[in-house]
Design a protein around this nucleic acid. Sequence first.
DNA 1: GATGAATGAGGTTTCATTCAT
DNA 2: TATGAATGAAACCTCATTCAT
Lengths: 225, 225, 225, 225
Amino acid sequence: MSVTPSAPASRAAAKQADKPAKVRDASVTKSRILDCAIQEFADHGYDGARIERIVKQANVNVSLAYQYFGSKENLFITVMEQAYDLMRANHRDFDIRGLEPLQAMESLVRWTFRIFVKHPQLIGLLNSENLHRGKHIAKSTYIRNLYNPLLDTIAMVLKRGAEDKVFRDDVKAEDLFISMNGMGYFYLSNRYTLSVILGRDLMKPAAIQHHEEHIVQVLLGYLRP
Amino acid sequence: MSVTPSAPASRAAAKQADKPAKVRDASVTKSRILDCAIQEFADHGYDGARIERIVKQANVNVSLAYQYFGSKENLFITVMEQAYDLMRANHRDFDIRGLEPLQAMESLVRWTFRIFVKHPQLIGLLNSENLHRGKHIAKSTYIRNLYNPLLDTIAMVLKRGAEDKVFRDDVKAEDLFISMNGMGYFYLSNRYTLSVILGRDLMKPAAIQHHEEHIVQVLLGYLRP
Amino acid sequence: MSVTPSAPASRAAAKQADKPAKVRDASVTKSRILDCAIQEFADHGYDGARIERIVKQANVNVSLAYQYFGSKENLFITVMEQAYDLMRANHRDFDIRGLEPLQAMESLVRWTFRIFVKHPQLIGLLNSENLHRGKHIAKSTYIRNLYNPLLDTIAMVLKRGAEDKVFRDDVKAEDLFISMNGMGYFYLSNRYTLSVILGRDLMKPAAIQHHEEHIVQVLLGYLRP
Amino acid sequence: MSVTPSAPASRAAAKQADKPAKVRDASVTKSRILDCAIQEFADHGYDGARIERIVKQANVNVSLAYQYFGSKENLFITVMEQAYDLMRANHRDFDIRGLEPLQAMESLVRWTFRIFVKHPQLIGLLNSENLHRGKHIAKSTYIRNLYNPLLDTIAMVLKRGAEDKVFRDDVKAEDLFISMNGMGYFYLSNRYTLSVILGRDLMKPAAIQHHEEHIVQVLLGYLRP
DNA sequence: GATGAATGAGGTTTCATTCAT
DNA sequence: TATGAATGAAACCTCATTCAT
């Protein structure tokens, strides 16, 4: 009798042919719940999200989610912390060493937009949280104390560019930070209401690509001395 | 003894001196409900909104709201129609006749931002609707068929500016429309999460004013030939 | 086809032959819920009581109970207020005018015991509330401000008896109040655990009657000068 | 470097200086759980008690409590058995040899009251069990077959007192047993609801002492021939 | 002997909605 | 036109209990 690796003969596996044997590992299960929660909260917002759906997706039961996270609100706060971590990590990954100010800024603009394109959940989560006036993140000391690396990067590139006379020298990093994020965020977050007005699908790859070019042109145009 | 119609001597009226005697006028009552609904949906989003709160605010009975609007969803759709009407009306009010392209565009940019500042409910409503992937406005033929005057105005100003050589000639009205709205919208809609990151209050009049100038600079900078 | 008078042919009645046509009267319904709640809380204590059972008994649904009482705790508080009202009303009904001190006191003792016998719910309610350290009644300003008529009656009888030299003159009304209530209350409240120890049923009418005589003897014996 | 036996240097012990190194001894652990269970059930009653709290207090795992006691109900039954044991043991400790009937009875009355004062958990446990109509102790053959020493002691003292003509001779031991227990029990068990009525704290040492004297007077007064 | 992970049944509460007048 | 009474489905959350090691 031989056992092929692709056909697990264990009894546990036999019981539920489609599902892999469930591992009893708290941290794995916990993060599985968290992942599903991110999706659910991003898709439906805080009020529209359903614990039931989250745990069904995560293949566990409701009680377990409560054992791990305590309450819906607490789960959401944890989700937001993950979201902020994700943004920060992405921003920190961006490396401008060895790039000319102009090149660096262009990359930065594209990069910032692409984070939102790549992680559309961020849009939904931030959207919902702003609807709630930021009351959930206000409860997270973790988020409140988070340092934002993007702002510094922008400031640094701005300074170099001004020194090299390729940028105007009266631009504030915070203003640029808001514009940079805003132009991409709005396009993605309001795509549904915009679609109705503009009568076309904004999520087609070509359309997204086009908007990225547009953002680059607007912001670099603004920076010209 | 006679009772004049304009001077109600009833005890009911005497009970609440501050409130005007409730008029039994269907259209008045209906629009009172609608006004309160706008506020509630803007404040809490579709899922967070409560019929109970709306009617209490409007000083009517729950059943009456249902009689007039049929369902929560239908009430929300009507609210969104009002919101779109409001935006359209504001955009149409904008008059560029007699203005130079540069002046016209600057006014347009400021005007667009100020609409959102003046009617903050628009932010909440659009926010919520986008969280729902636009599924409610999709059910309104009224909104779907709405013609947007702003786009045309932008196109017209762009054309004149290009002819006068004060604008570059490769700018698309739709792109500018998105940027114009996005830079203001994002600032306002994400003010709560931004406040946490930036550590300051974005709604102070000076801050709002500053951002308006910033938007103007960015967009006019971009349009320079 | 004939219709017998005992078989109501109305459609409403026909739908539910066993139940009388439900009257839509808020105060009636509310007090029906309250009555059932008294029974449920008395039978099972606060923690053991089930809203579900209360409303099923009252022939309404859960939501209505919440509409009227807000929460389980609030319903319980209302129940306790009713209980205190009941005790007070009973005590006030007791009339000693025209009775000799000895006679008056005997009647008072019997009367006090009989209130508990007649309203066994009082035992369960007080039992549960004391298990909770009185935390629910502490939330009722109504109960906190309640004046207790029994104490005064006792004091009055004691005074007259002492003047007539049929009672000792060093008895404090509060002490007697506690003894009077305690001897009856304990017998009834602890009947189940006592039954196990004594091996007999304490609730047989003869047993109850016997205990009443016993209480009378003990307390009047104590009062003898 | 030497290690003295009284100063455990292990890391586990160092971690929690206040707690003794946990001994892996079944009977010790079991009785630790039981002790915590007594407190929890006494404090919150059967329905209000939480397994979670018990095991946390006992510093063990939920599963262990189930391994030892099988179910919440069974644990409670064991708790009640302990309670009855405690009462019995206390009553048996009472020694009347060499005391005059009057002295003996006075001591007995005080002793009975003091047991409840000293072990307030008894109140909570009996309270809860009576709320449940004694259904848990009914399941314990141990408790059902328990012989009660107090009753015999009372009977004996009564007999001697009647022979010596210091007590009336028509007093039944069972009646006195109930009164004796009831007067003390009620004072303690209903202290919270009584506090509201009487507006004072019944648990102050002086108040308790006063009530003890009162009980003695009432019961000895009753026994006078 | 002891533990951490996981479950299921059921509890309280909320809320959009309809009924009856 | 307007109201108060009543409902049902479903939401969040709890808790005794069992599984697997």
